[in-house]
Amino acid sequence: MKVLVGVKRVVDPNVKVRVKADGSGVETANIKMAINPFCEIAVEQAVRMKEAGIVTEILVVTVGLPQCQETLRTAMAMGADRGILVETDVDVQPLAVAKVMKAIIAKENPQLVIMGKQAVDNDCNQTGQMVAALMGWPQATHISKVEPAGDHAEVTREVDGGLETLTIKLPAVVTADLRLNEPRYVTLPNIMKAKKKPLEVIKPDALGVDVTPRLTTLKVVEPAKRGSGVKLADVAELVNKLKNEAKVI
């Protein structure tokens, strides 16, 4: 079975982001970037399925700036076989990415698409669902387990209040949640090996996809800070404050 994994390059989640002085966006120049953590989990899942003999080939795809090649190399160092960068300097939004994915799926015919449930920059949580919609495929978002079996897969989803199990027909799109797996660390020999793996760069036009953003960001600001609190001496003082000052108990 062939698997396609979508990945995104984001600001490293451990970096505190700053709003640009003109309020037009978030400062990303000279900031440490990383593979989106949920995309990393998606790659890991594909690699584990290949190691288990279920998957034969892992294709990893991203959309964005030339630097996104680094993200593909990271995925290939983890074990993906080859990569495609759909290169554009447009700030691509989920619907555009989904259309790019659809065009690539049409050429590559994967049986399963694995993506992260959300990217930790724009926190949209949309792209996997949109790919499934455009393909007319089933979807399973926020999964903590996936077991393909013939023409279908058994999946467990993280839902509010617990877990949900579904049987989905293949081909399908699934999106990874936190507990699906714990991604491996990439080793130096694997980083070297990944440099020799095939990486194709194409433009959205070549796929016939219009990636023009649909939403316009008018401004970005930092939220209001919370007022500073007070350190208390002991539990008795805390109970007193909660009862008499905050009046919440």
């Binding site: 709003v19 989920p94 619907l95 926190d123 949309q126 939403l215 970005v220």
Partner: peptide, 29 residues
């Protein structure tokens, strides 16, 4: 497009939504 997780409504086509784990608020149209 979907406008995810809005925390404010400026007008019929303009909305506020938190991004970057709520460290930034974006106004989108």
């Amino acid at each position: 497009a979907q406008i995810s997780d809005i925390s404010g409504i400026e007008s019929a086509d303009t909305f506020v939504r938190p991004i970057y784990a709520g460290n930034v608020l974006a106004t989108v149209q």
